[in-house]
Design a protein around this nucleic acid. Structure first.
Length: 155
DNA sequence: GCCAACGTTGGC
DNA sequence: GCCAACGTTGGC
């Protein structure tokens, strides 16, 4: 089982938006980066766990956890001309982009801010915290996962 | 709004 | 295959 971190801009899709969906489950779609695509398509497995991270907002933070409930499958939004994620170069018979379904596990009572993550020596190698990192899907180690979850419980 | 960092595109 | 130009991300 693997651990991940998924970024989303809360103005586009927040953890509260996920919470409102039927069964608190929905597709993690719109990813348009090959490295991230490969992780969604090839490496994520049902039962994997992921942090839900809010980016490009007032207080960037991990706001909760989700579980992966599907294998990677073609991202239909790429075929939809009405979608903001439409990609004319992705074709149904040879899809370029992939997504997975995620289900909300827990919204943290207290978000764990990016600033506070940076202060923790145990997290100094986190991919999220690397200089210049822009990947919207990043791996998380078991140690990092436990460190962060422990802190979520304390608050 | 600024800007560093990175990814993608396209000419050669 | 190189690399300049451009577009995007995302923290601050």
């Amino acid at each position: 089982m693997k651990y991940w971190l998924l970024k989303s801009e809360p103005e586009t899709f927040s953890i509260d938006d996920l919470a409102k969906l039927p069964n608190q489950t929905g597709p993690w779609d719109g990813v348009r980066n090959y490295q991230a695509r490969n992780m969604l398509r090839d490496e994520m497995k049902i039962g994997d766990l992921a942090f839900f991270y809010h980016s490009s907002c007032e207080i960037p933070a991990i706001v909760g956890t989700v579980t992966i409930v599907s294998q990677g499958y073609p991202d239909d939004s790429a075929f939809n001309t009405k979608s903001r994620y439409y990609d004319p170069d992705s074709h149904p018979n040879q899809p370029r982009w992939y997504c997975v379904d995620v289900k909300l596990l827990k919204k943290f009572d207290q978000p764990i801010t990016l600033a506070s993550l940076r202060l923790d020596p145990a997290l100094k190698d986190m991919v999220l915290l690397r200089k210049g990192n822009r990947l919207s899907v990043t791996p998380v180690t078991a140690a990092e996962w436990n460190t962060i979850c422990r802190r979520a419980i304390q608050t």
